[in-house]
């Protein structure tokens, strides 16, 4: 009797019930460990001033997660965050938008035209090899401390990843496919629309992801070194007044924005590359 039961359980019960639970655990394992790590870190940080007595001087430079959360909540509740956030966001969006609008067609043109490539390549290479910070004094001199200086800084940072990746993708276009559409009477615009740009899309999306990072960096740099308002300005001012919690609050908002943008690009990429074998699943 016992023996029979044992065999039964061996074949049926535990295996069947274990398999899905095992799968669920596998799927959640990294999430649980990832979230767990953050929770442990925050707990230790929060407990630190209660375990160790900090000197008055050290306290000036110290804050706790709960304090940061409180400050962040207050900033949203009173609405004091909206002005700097909107200033930073418009600088980011305008600069990145202009970089896409300029970089994408320019990348396609340079990739398709050997003449344009020969003409512009020295400028692009030189410009791209120069650290963007070098241009900051000039930009501030010419455009002042307002929105447009920020837009230019963001633009310069975001343009090259988009331009260069688009160019690489365009150069990689399948010559047979270009001949195919040509044989059906396609002109140069049709070739770009039907073959060259779709073919370059994975490169362009990778460039966009890089460009977003550069654009956020551009906002931060512009606001740290010469702007009238924005999240970065708020952080610098808060640091000057030893409001460490406020500095962290700004940092969290910046990190949050970057994460949202990266997720948006991921969604865009999944939509644009539905046709690719590795995305379709199955095999």
């Amino acid at each position: 009797m016992t023996e029979t039961r044992a065999i039964e359980t061996d074949i049926g019960g535990p295996l069947e019930s274990a398999a899905p639970a095992d799968g669920l655990w596998h799927r959640l394992e990294s999430t649980i460990f990832g979230a767990g790590g953050i929770v442990v870190l925050l707990a230790v940080w929060e407990a630190l001033p209660r375990i160790v007595t900090l000197s008055a001087g050290t306290k000036l430079f110290f804050t706790t997660p709960s304090q940061i959360a409180e400050t962040l909540w207050q900033m949203f509740a009173t609405g004091s965050i909206w002005v700097p956030l909107s200033v930073s966001a418009s600088g980011f969006a305008l600069g990145l938008g202009l970089a896409v609008v300029a970089g994408l067609p320019l990348g396609v043109l340079i990739g398709r035209s050997p003449t344009l490539n020969a003409m512009l390549d020295p400028f692009i290479t030189a410009f791209n090899a120069t650290p963007r910070l070098v241009f900051l004094p000039l930009i501030m001199l010419w455009f002042g401390l307002g929105l447009w200086a920020k837009v230019i800084v963001v633009f310069i940072g975001a343009l090259f990843p988009i331009l260069i990746n688009t160019y690489e993708g365009v150069r990689n276009a399948d010559k047979t496919l270009i001949n195919v559409v040509r044989s059906f009477g396609a002109n140069e615009w049709d070739v770009a629309r039907l073959v060259v740009v779709p073919n370059a899309m994975p490169y362009i999306v990778a460039g966009l992801r890089l460009a977003i990072g550069r654009a956020v960096l551009g906002v931060v740099v512009a606001e740290f070194f010469g702007s009238e308002s924005g999240l970065g300005v708020m952080m610098v001012q808060a640091a000057g007044q030893y409001h460490v919690d406020k500095v962290f609050a700004g940092l969290i908002v910046f990190a949050g924005l970057s994460l949202i943008m990266t997720a948006a690009v991921q969604v865009l990429e999944n939509r644009l590359t539905l046709w690719r074998p590795q995305r379709a699943g199955g095999e």
């Binding site: 047979t176 496919l177 001949n179 195919v180 559409v181 044989s183 059906f184 039907l194 073959v195 779709p198 073919n199 899309m201 046709w275 690719r276």
Partner: peptide, 12 residues
Amino acid sequence: AMVFQEFGLLPW
């Protein structure tokens, strides 16, 4: 019209 050797279909 041409029928191409490696099919020449637009993968997207």
